[in-house]
Design a protein around this nucleic acid. Sequence first.
DNA 1: GAGTAGATCCTCT
DNA 2: GAGGATCTACTCA
Length: 200
Amino acid sequence: MTKLPLSFFERSDVVQIARELIGKILLTSFNGQRTSGRIVETEAYNGIVDKASHAYSGRRTNRTDIMFREGGTAYVYLCYGIHHLFNVVTNTINIPHAVLIRAIEPLEGVDIMKERLHIQKGAQPEHTLGRGPGKLSKALGISTSHTGTILQESIAIYDDGYTPSEIVVSARIGVDYAAEDAELPYRFYLAGSKAVSGKK
DNA sequence: GAGTAGATCCTCT
DNA sequence: GAGGATCTACTCA
């Protein structure tokens, strides 16, 4: 299992990176609690030309400033006052591209994830633990305090040689406000995975 | 099984 | 002061 280098995220094609992240492993290690899962669903956010992106038209505020950093930085923000959403910043400095990680299949630390989600042990099948961006962040212990973290230490993404059998492309979820950009084929998921969120 | 309301708070206008 | 890259629980059928 090899850790993805920062150069993986510093490439210019955010849509390509989103596709390649399917099947990779997201691993967090906080306070000795190690949890990981295989990424099965992602969405690309294509910077200043993408109405669905927080950085659309070059909007740079305290919150979005993280997206203007170099690739391989974590961008975590609070949605609906409840959910912490985990993104990976891509491309180079001053280009605010990002990939939203939407779903994982749990691998290590399943009991820790259940504890974090307040699920009784064995009460729910494992594939529900990382189904959806809000739950995934909670299961892995990621919160807004981790925004700006470089993805090489307490949070990192690995390649264990797994090759996805079939990747499905679709429009993104929950971005109706983005008008015609909501239709863009920027969402990728692993065909047949039970952990994929959204419609069937 | 499908549809809907409510939670809840930070960020930007 | 409004609204959001969501999730759950509850209703009704």
